[in-house]
Design a protein around this nucleic acid. Structure first.
Lengths: 229, 229
DNA sequence: TCAAAAGTGTTAACCATACACCCATGC
DNA sequence: GCATGGGTGTATGGTTAACACTTTTGA
């Protein structure tokens, strides 16, 4: 027991809410615990913060270690620290949420062989600790933020048809959007570049594929433009 | 040295960015440190989290102990945890920001006789640790949030004239607002109750005093109303 | 009577919404 | 040729933005 302090110190962990999206659903990445407490229960990936790494670095490391997910949009969400949230000892958890392009990231089981899987947020298992609350906060944040920051693109493949973008918004905001108005608005922003490509192998007229034009966005933003819906 | 752990644990603190407002300025509450490191420097009030209290309770307790400020709007801001942000040991700081009615809170020097004072945010001294960064994040949050949540009232006295509300918004948003449009909009929301009182002892026509009607706001909110600007 | 801030309406431009049909493609 | 989703324009109503003068009060 080599680490001693004059005053008691809580443990500090990071937990990650990783969102992905496929044609049908918004999904979240969970791991199945193989140690008590909550052995066998599903939980958010996470772990202890090392003494020499920043909180964000810890979150990235844990996500990579436990799920193989890398290269993601990551943002601090909220810090959870109720005294009894972990039955073992006082644990402060700094939660992050992440957005990944599902197609690029086939998750692999973690090195320690725990189960890893995507669950639709509309149909989740019971979660360990206070992870349902964390997920809830993450969902509210995503729902709020997607309306005034262009982060939805982080959940889509590099190239996507407008209908897929619309479906993503409809799924996350939980409300239908008018097709013509949606297209008009999003195209008028000048954030999407036409890739000059079209869908392949679809059983109907193939849609144009667009891509989020990051440099344009930065330019517009500097000029005072504010993304909204 | 009675507290030992199998793995190293960082220390966890809370820091508070307390905002106040008077006719002229947005202000922030700072304390002058009387211990190294940064002895003599101004800093945000804060301190260690006790093992049996929640993070928010810790923030409230520290603010009360160090500045005498109580009964305030308090919200978690962000968690700062860069490895070297405190030269003594690894310290994770969960920052909160608070809004208080300046008139109600003449600050008292803390029990341990440290200096406490309000500073205009436009004219701050150099701060200890990474507290300038924390303050910066708090300002951005306040600026964003005041536009879509009715939190500005937390900074004003119970009863206030519309012009003072407008000045508050102009100060925080750092942009002038049109008087007629501002009044039209804010009054049309139905959130302000006319107190039937008027200003006293002013050297010009006395303005009506209004008060934020919390029950009305809750009712409207439940009915789907969204405050904006 | 002057200074200082309170209080008050109208118009024009813009933006959001609602809404329906033809097109291209693969089966 | 039919089913599937892609793609397109207009009209209306509501919201925002711009703008100037009269009123009240105390000094």
């Amino acid at each position: 027991m080599p680490y001693t302090y004059e005053y008691p110190h809580p443990a500090v962990t990071v937990d990650g809410v990783v969102f992905g999206y496929d044609e049908a659903d918004l999904k979240v990445l969970l791991i199945q615990r193989d140690q008590p407490p909550y052995r066998g229960k599903w939980a958010l990936p996470g772990g202890f913060v090392d003494m020499n790494e920043s909180l964000e670095a810890a979150a990235r490391r844990e996500l990579e270690e436990e799920t193989g997910v890398t290269e993601l949009y990551l943002e601090q969400l909220y810090t959870f620290g109720e005294p009894k949230r972990d039955p073992r000892e006082r644990v402060i958890s700094v939660a992050y949420y992440a957005l990944v392009k599902l197609a690029d990231h086939t998750v692999r089981a973690a090195s320690d062989a725990r189960n890893v899987a995507w669950f639709p947020v509309a149909n989740l298992p019971a979660l360990a600790f206070d992870h349902e609350e964390i997920l809830d906060v993450a969902l509210r944040r995503l729902k709020g933020k997607i309306r005034y920051e262009p982060i939805g693109f982080e959940l889509l493949p590099e190239k996507f048809p407008l209908s897929e973008l619309q479906r993503l918004y409809e799924t996350i905001l939980e409300q239908p959007l008018d097709k013509r108005n949606f297209r008009k608005k999003i195209l008028s922003m000048g954030l999407l570049a036409d890739t000059e490509e079209i869908q392949q192998d679809v059983a109907h007229r193939a849609a144009r594929l667009y891509r989020f034009d990051e440099p344009s966005y930065r330019r517009l933003k500097k000029a005072g433009f504010n993304f909204e819906l």
